[in-house]
Nucleic acid binder design. Structure first.
Lengths: 204, 204, 204, 204
DNA sequence: CATGAATGAGTTTTCATTCAT
DNA sequence: AATGAATGAAAACTCATTCAT
């Protein structure tokens, strides 16, 4: 019903690139449903209804249900990557850079919790296409090269960067999930504490 | 990947408790399919085929598809909890206890990677029944009381225990996922490194 | 037998109340099949085929197979009751009123033999819902109060009205069944004879 | 559970003809289930369970589910016919003969209400075989010839005998159904009243 | 003989997709 | 462009019947 409430972000990106409001409404609706009920648990007519359009209209904007999930994955994954890259300052200390990483993730989750949940849930799903997989790989490589640089600089522990990345990202996901299960509130204090903990896990 | 590693455990439970071989074959097949394709993405006839039985036979052992997912959840969740509790020694130092925790999780994942993936994927799914939810809650409370005790003893950091738990568990899950995506091998060295990292995240 | 005789009525209701032609085609087909083969003996795709539509389409008009049987029951039961009530004249003699009753039933059977068979067959079936049962009860009470009045007026025999009602209605049903088995033709003469017989059964 | 309660009648016929106790248990169970839930609404394994035997055992005694329904139909239809014929006395007045007819039907219903319900429900079902239909036809012809004789003797009204038969039998069925719906109790008084009513419907 | 586990064809129902309007 | 009714393939589930024990 309140189609416009969560739409702001997508709508902006949309008009720039000439995408339609309806396409966004579909993505918005699908995001919520996919993150709550999963891909196979979500019927296309339900997406259409939530988007406030006819079921057939969905297929004017997307070739198939899989195309929707891939568009969502790529949109939000890219958005998150862009935010990460945008704020980086070479002059920052490693601890400051880690704080930046943590703060960006947290801001993303707060603005768009469904999108974060969606990205985690659909990681490496069989219905993700090559473009989604390639994007995921590109972003991973970017992050790894940064961690390798940190390792060379003795800023982080001298262990495989994949281990440190998995710990840091996994820990963040763990915190978000705990929040989703209402076992935790992602307050400023809590996230600052958590940030420091995770920093101590990886710092050299 | 390793079908047989995960089979041993179920097979044992079977002969001990008089459960049928066919019931186990169904659980075995369903575990693999559910963890790969999700609940809604797995058709019952597919489970039957993988189990080497007729589609109708599934319903001689389980009331519904939901009953299968709940039987799996409860079986493996309980198994993991039992392993955790069994090996605990009061005389161990906190660091030793953390090592125990880490080692048990690692052993579980190695023996039964599909089961671990399954438990993570189906956490808080809407098709889990009250028994599954109650079991999950009981295990969570047990873990929290231990972390609260550690906090009182100044063994871990003086932050909400839920934060430390989420970090430790989330980090472990992150490592397992990285392994699932073949970005990491859960070698002895890697997991020993990771264990130390995570310990440093939570220690007081 | 006479498919068109029974169709008129539904078709009329349809255009009046804006119901769809397809919905009526489903009801038409279901009526015939249910009255011939029973509820459990009739598969939904068979209804769809007879209605000239796809199997899935049935579920755009009815929630379930049970919803179809209840829609049919309520529609035809109400129709029969309406006809009964409509033609009643207070100034008529009891014998004339009995003739009215008999004539209405006969006209109903002739126009819509399947519907009459259906109503008799599905009387008090476990799949009838509360609305169907309530309607049935209301109509029964109406008829009983009339018989009670007749009894007070010494127009009918001084026996329980339920007995007289059961005899009169049962006799009529018996005649219709004999016709269905082709042992009898419901000719004017035959039904006039029968009417007089039944009147003599109940008259005071 | 109380398999033996209603069995007496069938059991007697059984031992005489070398039929087994198990066969009777199947018929007993099937009678109850068919009359309550209909043919298609009754699962064979349910019959077996109610009969206290294994599902496969049913097929040692009956070729198919249809064979059970036909055995039941023929058994009870023949039983009812036998009772009718047995008690007839040529020296009785027509009114006495009608009383005999009424009393036999009533005794049958009281002893074996399920069987009566079953016979009415399965009248002219598509799954009745030729033997069942032939038996039904034979009994009908017998009854008709008697009514024709009565007509010639001016004992009953000078109308088609099929009409009088339908009225008399239909009225009886109507009374039994009213009893089944708990709208009537088949007390001595009620049935004596009803008998007289129906007699007045047909008497010359 | 008796069984009951096993099954595959059949049931009711859902849904991704199409297409006439 | 937009629709939403229509659909058939496929889903979950049932059951008459068979057959190894």
């Amino acid at each position: 019903m309140n189609i416009h409430s969560g739409m702001t972000e997508l709508s902006r990106a949309t008009t720039e690139e000439g995408r339609s409001l309806k396409r966004d409404a579909i993505l918005e609706a699908a995001l919520e449903l996919f993150s709550e009920r999963g891909f196979h648990g979500t019927a296309v007519p339900l997406i259409a209804e939530k988007a406030g359009i006819g079921a057939g209209t969905v297929y004017r904007y997307f070739e198939s249900k899989e195309a929707i999930v891939n568009a969502l994955y790529q949109h939000h994954k890219q958005d998150l990557a862009d935010r990460m890259i945008r704020g980086i300052r070479a002059e920052q200390s490693p601890r400051e850079q880690f704080h930046h990483y943590w703060a960006i993730l947290l801001a993303f989750v707060r603005e768009n919790p469904k999108a974060f949940e969606f990205l985690e849930l659909h990681h490496h799903s069989p219905y993700l296409d090559d473009a989604s997989r390639a994007l995921e790989q590109r972003i991973f490589e970017m992050a790894r090269s940064r961690f390798e640089e940190f390792r060379r600089q003795r800023v982080v522990k001298d262990v495989q960067p994949e281990i440190l990345m998995s710990i840091a990202h996994g820990a963040f996901v763990g915190l978000v999930k705990a929040c989703g299960q209402e076992r935790l509130v992602l307050s400023e204090k809590a996230m600052a504490d958590a940030e420091q903990c995770v920093w101590e896990a990886i710092r050299g």
